[in-house]
Design a protein around this nucleic acid. Structure first.
Lengths: 278, 278
DNA sequence: GAGTGGTCTAGACCACTGT
DNA sequence: CAGTGGTCTAGACCACTCC
């Protein structure tokens, strides 16, 4: 976008949409309330139905309303967001040392969905691929080195919609001594990635999460069953072993309307002899 | 969104947009390349110009293309993202104990923008407000208690666009013994929030970052100078003192096309006597 | 069946960009 | 200037929901 020049009066669709947004934010329209019908808006603002439609479409893109297709559009309820905490990393590491009976089929990703594990469709596929430049530089390996790639997907069979999705990469050098890792029958990885790395003698010392967000493609929108105007959180997790070497990259997507990422940072304590006022 | 019923053939605009996206993802169209003109798309797909326009608009909403208004729309270059790391929390805490000369006007938010500090427009306003229910429950104080609110904004004077924005809340009980905190002339807070809290005898022990994302409103889009299809990262930072009490909440927004949030989690080491295979 | 929004058309006008 | 996309109109058809 270029710097502003002469201000232009906002187009009609924007004015209508903003007016509706204000009504929503003030509480005149509460979550679940229907919006005025298109023809009603068109009449009130003495504009065409097409323009009124665009106003509605705008609010949809911004994620404030939902519905349509026969139904009146309604104010979107602020959805409950499932929290994904960074404590999970420590928990997964602890889990890797527990006996296999207890690890069992305890997949970390599934347990906080509130859906019984046996009602979900897992799928995970492995293959080996050459890394591109961006992956190679993060994993600190040669360009076009081979990595084990694992694509993981979790689908709710009742709705057909995706609940979780991630791709992870581990340098093949690190895992080839344990062929079990390459066997798709062992899904979901019992105990998770941390345990898998343990079987080849790797202890993860720290985890870096890189977070950004983009809009989903239309294909993603259908796979996840997303409303319009819902961004995707894109998270790259880099696991680093205790010697400081990156050992795994995992790219995961989360719909932003139902996900909150929570990160806790512990700070070092101040020495006791500090000046109480700088 | 409801579960899928009978599949509906995707509308024409979506088909056109998807075709273009595939061309972009395959590399047939590179960043900066212009897209076919609307009338050209309409001709190729034997559809109306309006429909072709919608296809272009769709790709814009998804953040893949930019431009327009006289210019041909071009494939959006993946923008360089400025990293905001959780290491910043420790750094700010360390800074609070350094002598005031060195703290000076070192604002944490500004230093990584690559723009000289004296070329930027700060603004910070204080007031005291009653907390709503959501803030009260996080700060663990009574509903309608008073808090010190600080709204911070940073604007690039050359473009007029916003570069940073946040609101933070501190319970008034905690700060009333240091009236300096209420003086707007002391901006930007020398040494940051950590130092301000130090002056009233509070040491921050941990910081929790809650991250989600939503689409910007049209007003935000103009304030920040955002392209279409760019989500906003919404971050709530909760500072917790060494006794476990929440002492500050800060809500900050970051445009997702130019921001990457990075969080590092240190894990406890395994004991030496561990079984190498579970 | 009546009413809704979603898609699509055809065409007009405007603001902006390049030359 | 001609060419571009953005806005807006008027009207048609369809899929869907609710009564």
């Amino acid at each position: 976008m270029e710097p502003r020049a002469t201000p232009v009066p906002p187009p009609m669709q924007v004015r209508i949409a903003d007016d509706l947004r204000i009504k929503i934010e003030r509480g005149d329209l509460e979550a679940g309330d229907p919006l005025p019908a298109v023809h009603e808006l068109a009449r009130r603002w003495s504009t065409s139905e097409g323009t009124a439609r665009s106003a509605i479409a705008l609010l949809k893109q911004q994620g404030l309303i939902t519905g349509g297709r026969g139904r009146a559009p309604v104010v979107r309820a602020r959805p409950v967001r499932v929290v994904r905490s960074s404590d999970r990393h420590q928990a997964e590491k602890d889990l890797a040392l527990t006996p296999p009976e207890r690890r069992g089929r305890t997949g970390a990703a599934e347990t906080d969905m509130g859906i019984p594990l046996d009602r979900l469709d897992f799928s995970a596929t492995y293959d080996t691929v050459s890394v591109d430049e961006s992956l190679a530089s993060v994993l600190n390996i040669d360009n076009e080195s081979e990595v084990l790639r694992r694509v993981y997907e979790l689908v709710n069979p009742e709705t057909g919609y995706r609940l979780a999705w991630s791709v992870s990469y581990i340098p093949l050098d690190l895992v080839h001594e344990n062929p079990e890792l390459l066997d798709s029958k062992n899904e979901p990885w019992p105990g998770g990635t941390m345990h898998q790395l343990l079987t080849v003698g790797i202890e993860v010392g720290s985890v870096v999460d890189e977070v950004s967000a983009t809009m989903p493609t239309t294909a993603e929108q259908h796979l996840w069953g997303l409303d319009d105007g819902v961004p995707m959180l894109r998270v790259r997790r880099i696991s680093i072993d205790i010697s400081g070497r990156p050992v795994e990259i995992s790219d995961a997507d989360y719909p932003a309307d139902r996900t909150e990422l929570r990160f806790t940072t512990q700070l070092r304590k101040w020495p006791k002899s500090r000046s109480a006022n700088g």
